[in-house]
């Protein structure tokens, strides 16, 4: 186990307790509607949002990695490779490419945030760090994304 300070553990327990209390009556009457009300009663904190986004982007990237490695087997044949590349030059795939960059950027910056917190253990700074992660990944995604979609969605509309 990693060292967890007693202080942050109590903060964590208090947060959990609050979530359970806020979702109170729904636990006695389970249905899809009460499930939704329970979910919406959760106060999404920076740490939870970071954890959820890190997991979702991670799973998407693993899914992409498998397709990517299997697809690149077409490098064995020049014609097959050019066909493969043309498929991914479709405008819809260009948007997917921007989303891929977004997932990579968030996962990378959030990974650095986790690393920084593990080294310095400044839990009171975590919210600021999370906002920095969001800002940095947005900047990288916007800048890289513009370069990716430029020939497809911007250049045709320029005079």
């Amino acid at each position: 186990m990693l060292p967890v300070s007693r202080f942050s553990y109590h903060i964590y327990r208090l947060g959990m307790q609050e979530n359970i209390e806020r979702s109170g009556p729904s636990r006695d009457n389970p249905s899809f509607r009460t499930f939704l009300s329970m979910i919406s009663s959760y106060r999404i904190r920076a740490g939870m949002a970071a954890w959820l986004l890190h997991r979702l982007t991670g799973l998407s990237l693993v899914f992409y990695l498998v397709i990517h490695i299997m697809g690149l087997r077409s490098l064995g044949d020049p014609a097959a490779f050019e066909l493969y590349i043309t498929t991914f030059r479709n405008p819809l795939f260009k948007i997917a490419e921007v989303m891929l960059l977004g997932a990579i950027a968030f996962h990378a910056f959030n990974g650095v945030r986790i690393l920084i917190q593990d080294i310095f253990f400044r839990s009171e700074r975590q919210r600021i760090l999370f906002y920095a992660v969001l800002a940095l990944s947005s900047i990288v995604t916007l800048a890289g994304g513009l370069l990716i979609i430029f020939p497809y969605f911007i250049a045709p509309f320029l005079p």
């Binding site: 490098l75 014609a79 490779f81 050019e82 066909l83 590349i85 030059r89 430029f150 497809y152 250049a155």
Partner: peptide, 27 residues
Amino acid sequence: PEFADAIAKGKIREALPGEHVITYDKV
């Protein structure tokens, strides 16, 4: 003929102005 066929059917498309493309030769 494989390449010629693919180009005729539009499966290998010309680059748009300003586009950069990954291609077998470069790789």
